[in-house]
């Protein structure tokens, strides 16, 4: 899809909830950091081709759960996961699952923009290169350009692809990170508070971008901003103290929450 400047306002993008298939099925997931339990018996079905937002107060386990989906928490010492998480029916905690392949399918965008201290081109080309996706140099260039276009960054950087990725502004860096994630053709994109380090204008660009690409990916976004969750997501999950309190249509969640804790949180009574 094109990065056309005549994007409809976010609220006008049609929400076709019933056409989606389930992409991720988590059942009875528990996550422990040493003795401390961060996620308690969590079960959730996350649909494809939609944006699901995880909200909740700090320390509620939303980032932790996000990181179990691409097994990023494997790198944390003393982190232990029980239960099943199925992606397209395959349990990603199976012994025979290659975590490298998993992460190629499940891309991730982090809280703080973290481009490699290399050129813009190299930043995007790195993933395709290590996965052997590009057949030739021209192929690789095409992937890089397409990824940058999808991340609506290409127009801004097309003349300086050899400049350092760290020379970009914060918002551009974050879009570069999204381009980098897109370049390896993931099916799922995890975003861990992607706008928390950005100013409102840069955040708006990222939100637009998420909305543009959501038709092609299963996107999960962790956010502290309820306005952002309301603007960008079709589904919202509310986490509290390691429990998934409520998961449902975003509009319903923000208008008629079922749980008292959700209502208290979204009305700003705690958190």
């Amino acid at each position: 899809m094109d990065a056309s400047p005549q994007m409809p306002t976010l609220s006008k993008v049609p929400r076709i909830l019933n056409e989606r298939e389930t992409k991720i099925v988590a059942s009875d997931v528990n996550v422990y950091y040493g003795e401390k339990q961060a996620i308690k018996n969590l079960s959730i079905d996350i649909p494809d081709r939609a944006v699901s937002a995880f909200i909740g107060p700090s320390g509620c386990g939303k980032s932790t759960f996000l990181r179990t989906i691409n097994r990023m928490n494997d790198t944390i010492d003393g982190c232990r996961v029980t239960g099943d998480i199925l992606v397209d029916g395959k349990n990603i905690y199976d012994r025979d699952l290659d975590v490298v392949q998993l992460r190629a399918r499940v891309g991730m965008v982090f809280q703080k923009p973290n481009p490699f201290p290399k050129s813009i081109f190299e930043n995007v080309a790195y993933g395709p290169r290590i996965h052997g996706i590009a057949k030739s140099k021209a192929d690789l260039e095409e992937i890089v350009v397409n990824s940058l276009k999808k991340a609506s960054l290409f127009e801004e950087v097309k003349d300086r692809l050899d400049h350092s990725g760290t020379s970009l502004s914060g918002g551009q860096q974050q879009r570069l990170c999204i381009a980098r994630a897109i370049a390896v053709n993931p099916e799922i994109i995890l975003m861990d508070e992607p706008c928390s380090a950005l100013d409102p204008i840069a955040s708006a660009r990222i939100e637009e971008l998420i909305d543009e690409i959501r038709q092609n990916y299963c996107i999960i976004i962790v956010t502290h901003s309820m306005q952002q969750a309301a603007r960008v997501s079709q589904l919202t999950a509310f986490f509290h103290l390691g429990d998934l309190v409520e998961f449902g249509d975003t509009d319903e969640m923000f208008t008629t929450p079922k749980d008292k804790r959700t209502q208290d949180y979204i009305t700003g009574r705690f958190g």
Partner: peptide, 10 residues
Amino acid sequence: IKEAALGVGA
């Protein structure tokens, strides 16, 4: 930086 690399499947 390491997370970024792991994140794209390195």
